[in-house]
Write a protein that binds this DNA or RNA. Structure first.
Lengths: 126, 126
DNA sequence: TAGGGTTGGTCACAATTTTATACTACTCAT
DNA sequence: ATGAGTAGTATAAAATTGTGACCAACCCTA
């Protein structure tokens, strides 16, 4: 048996999928979507984000914002005033993500009733 | 006309944000999106899903499938054969989620290069 | 001049979630 | 008899996330 006879597990497809997954894992984490929605209408300050996104901790907001900034989806503008002011804003690439994210939000809203009914039915039947 | 110019319907403001968040938290977790993509072309068996979704543990696949089933997004069909066979398939509601999920996947693929470049630039500069 | 509030964070530690590993029970092919 | 495949469960380890304290600079009030 030569090397050519060995069946490798789909190397081409995996090579393509991995970077896409890395990106999706950033977007589809617990908080990123909500940050996107919050930044939908323009720049927002750190503590305004914190108030708007119910339940997020200061730590997770900082971490998530830093990751989104690293990916070039949001920009961070620091005004050296007292008290300090930091604005977060969608970049051009970030803005292009608004459409699919909003489509997902719209879907969630449209199908809320169906899902809640399915849950009730499931919990009743078991 | 590019993807960014397409006008998706905007979700109405804040009325009942909490239930929508509950739904989004299910969809936008670490594995649900990949299960949706894997089920895109028809029913798939448990271990086939496991092989297709690289890195998922057996436990998390079971848990995530159960949650999606509870929400009425996928259906579970058990054939009492030996060896056992269980098919997972998108329901009608689940199928309606394909469009927004695929829009997100397409976005991720289109913006892969831009994001990777932003990451390199960011890591270099700091 | 002392105390309290605001800003955008960081840090250490606790709680939660996810992963890895082993195990079940059953059958078929070698 | 051995190993592979089926769809899971149980448990401990690892990773992620949340909690509360702390910081420094200033403003306002008393």
């Amino acid at each position: 048996m030569t090397l050519g006879d060995i069946e490798f597990p789909t190397p081409s497809e995996e090579a393509d999928c991995l970077p896409v997954r890395e990106i999706l894992d950033r977007i589809a984490d617990k908080w990123s979507l909500y940050i996107f929605v919050a930044l939908n209408d323009g720049p927002v300050r750190f503590n305004a984000l914190r108030r708007q996104i119910d339940g997020i901790s200061q730590r997770m907001l900082t971490i998530t914002l830093r990751q989104l900034e690293r990916d070039g989806l949001i920009s961070r503008t620091h005004f050296p005033t007292i008290p300090p002011r930091v604005d977060y804003e969608l970049t051009a690439v970030g803005k292009s993500l608004r459409a699919p994210v909003m489509a997902l939000m719209t879907w969630a809203e449209s199908n809320r009733d169906a899902i809640e009914q399915a849950r009730r039915l499931h919990d009743q039947t078991r």
